[in-house]
Nucleic acid binder design. Sequence first.
DNA 1: CTGCCTGCAAACTCTTTGCACGAAT
DNA 2: ATTCGTGCAAAGAGTTTGCAGGCAG
Lengths: 154, 154
Amino acid sequence: MSLPAARDKFRSFLTRRGLRATSQRLAIFDAAFTQGEHFTADQLLASARALDDSVSRATIYRTLPIMTESALLREVDIGSGEKFYRSNRDGARTQLAQVVCLDCAKIFEISAPFMEWYGSTVSSKLGLTPVSQRLQVSARCDAFRATGTCPRRG
Amino acid sequence: MSLPAARDKFRSFLTRRGLRATSQRLAIFDAAFTQGEHFTADQLLASARALDDSVSRATIYRTLPIMTESALLREVDIGSGEKFYRSNRDGARTQLAQVVCLDCAKIFEISAPFMEWYGSTVSSKLGLTPVSQRLQVSARCDAFRATGTCPRRG
DNA sequence: CTGCCTGCAAACTCTTTGCACGAAT
DNA sequence: ATTCGTGCAAAGAGTTTGCAGGCAG
């Protein structure tokens, strides 16, 4: 999905929800959508300010949940203090598991369709309805342990 | 495992690591081990103080990682701001998945042995060695949504 | 005795919120 | 014109840390 097309989707999502299409929200959206990898609120603030230097940290935090609810952005919480985000360029895919490398500080995402089945099965036995599920693997980098450097390391 | 037996294991773990068996550490351990459910650092502080009122919050936070490394305690991070802990009364079991009820604020744990297999399979393809994995389902309580009350709710 | 451990309080990180001004509809 | 949205700065929650004194080995 191209940026203009995605931005239009975001605009209409805002309108549908009775929210205003402010220049800050659009700048934040553009920054998020053109971000390559997973990013933090702080990195998003820097990118958004490059497009519109009036963007404040508060508005970043107020806009992130809006973008998440629009499904144009996904939140990825790997339990590391700060949350990560990633734009949903390819639309609603199947469920993703995360493999987090503790040496490379990198997040790999892998399709895990069985996760949804597992969530439903297990929830119904408890009288619950699943809302979301996450599967995460923490791992160490073999190359890093062997050579002291990892090709993926920043 | 009985409390005295568990406490002995903790003592010998401390010695093996060159750490001192202070009265505070032992009180915190006893409090953790006799806690019934999942508990937070704050709840542990209250319980430990009931046994030894000299225990401080700082020592709770300094002792939790020690107990976790001794494998007598497990950390359960459901991504809710504060971490939960649970004593490992039954020794090293199979991998557990968590089902978190958003209405009841309760954590159910379910054996999920396939998680370990998944972690290894997926990691090796990336040149990684798995350290840990977690599988969590967030869910809403059917009873609560229907009647406004949940039998499990506190 | 030595130096690891402690309580206290302040610092820290990430996120949220109250307020008065400013801009979208 | 209305209201919703904004930046600023302060508050908040949970956890960590520097320091001077205390107790285990």
